[in-house]
């Protein structure tokens, strides 16, 4: 749909951060000198504690925020070379708070980008139905409003909406964070099978190491506005980096302490 946005049309990284810093007008630094490439078709997971700057980093990609220093290139194009509206319509975005439009039905929420892209309405309807099936939503929910859905259903709508115009890039900000462990497990599994078919470039944010290990091609570890290290899940578990090791330790503690209690 958007020429140049699709992976096969170009070489080079899908997204590139070059010396990106972000400061508030007050002078407070939220991001410091971020350098990173996101490869086409990979799932890059930003892992970090609350307030470490994950959401801020993500918003640099679809230019909801503009770096105060450095440059974020999407598909090799700098911010100055891209039309921000076009850019955003080519990037699916699932935000932390979901942010469904409360006055639109499920169907209209999912078809939002096609609608503003002025697709013919029968094509939008067909696409919406297809997406509801892909993300596992009962087609009977199409006419409901967001407040009539469960949290898990809302998240599925959020994911379907982000996929609607078949974007090459998907930004997902703690999309499963507010869900119970079993529903989260379901959605993670579905995400993996979806990603196996679709091969999107996904930038995923989480503070949950389990989720990062399960979904990531690579994990980008963040702390206090800095990128600490970028590692594959396997390398992450063996890493000697103190922060990464601390995550792994915390991850094991719960299991270990339960096991110890059981044996004593």
């Amino acid at each position: 749909m958007l020429a140049g946005m699709h992976g096969e049309s170009r070489d080079g990284p899908a997204i590139e951060f070059c010396g990106v810093s972000y400061e508030l007008p007050s002078g407070r630094r939220l991001l410091s000198d971020l350098n990173l490439q996101v490869q086409r078709g990979e799932t890059l997971v930003f892992l970090g504690r609350s307030g470490s700057g994950k959401t801020t980093t993500l918003k640099m990609i679809n230019r909801l925020l503009t770096p105060t220093k450095g440059e974020v290139c999407v598909d090799g194009a700098t911010a100055a070379q891209t039309d921000v509206i076009r850019l955003r319509r080519g990037i699916g975005y699932v935000i932390q708070e979901i942010g469904l439009l409360p006055h639109f039905t499920v169907e209209r929420n999912i078809g939002l980008v096609p609608e503003i892209e002025a697709w013919p309405s029968d094509k939008i309807r067909a696409r919406t139905q297809e997406l509801m099936q892909i993300v596992g939503l009962d087609s009977q929910l199409a006419a409901r409003y967001p407040h009539q859905l469960s949290g898990g259903q809302r998240q599925r709508v959020g994911v379907a909406r982000a996929l609607a115009a078949d974007p090459a890039i998907l930004l997902m900000d703690e999309p499963f964070g507010a869900l119970d462990p079993l529903t989260r497990d379901d959605l993670q599994r579905e995400f993996l099978s979806l990603q196996q078919r679709l091969h999107k470039t996904v930038v995923f944010v989480t503070h949950d190491l389990n989720e990062a290990l399960r979904l990531a091609s690579r994990i980008a570890l963040m702390e206090a506005g800095k990128l600490i290290t970028v590692l594959s899940p396997q390398a992450f578990l063996r890493s000697t980096d103190p922060l990464a090791a601390a995550y792994v330790r915390a991850f094991h503690t719960g299991l270990d302490s339960t096991a110890n209690r059981g044996s004593s």
Binding site: L64, Y93, Q96, G99, L112, I116
Partner: peptide, 15 residues
């Protein structure tokens, strides 16, 4: 209007 709603609408590429 809830900021999350505005942000997601912007993020979808609404003018």
């Amino acid at each position: 209007v809830e900021p999350a709603v505005v942000e997601s609408a912007r993020g979808m590429g609404m003018t």
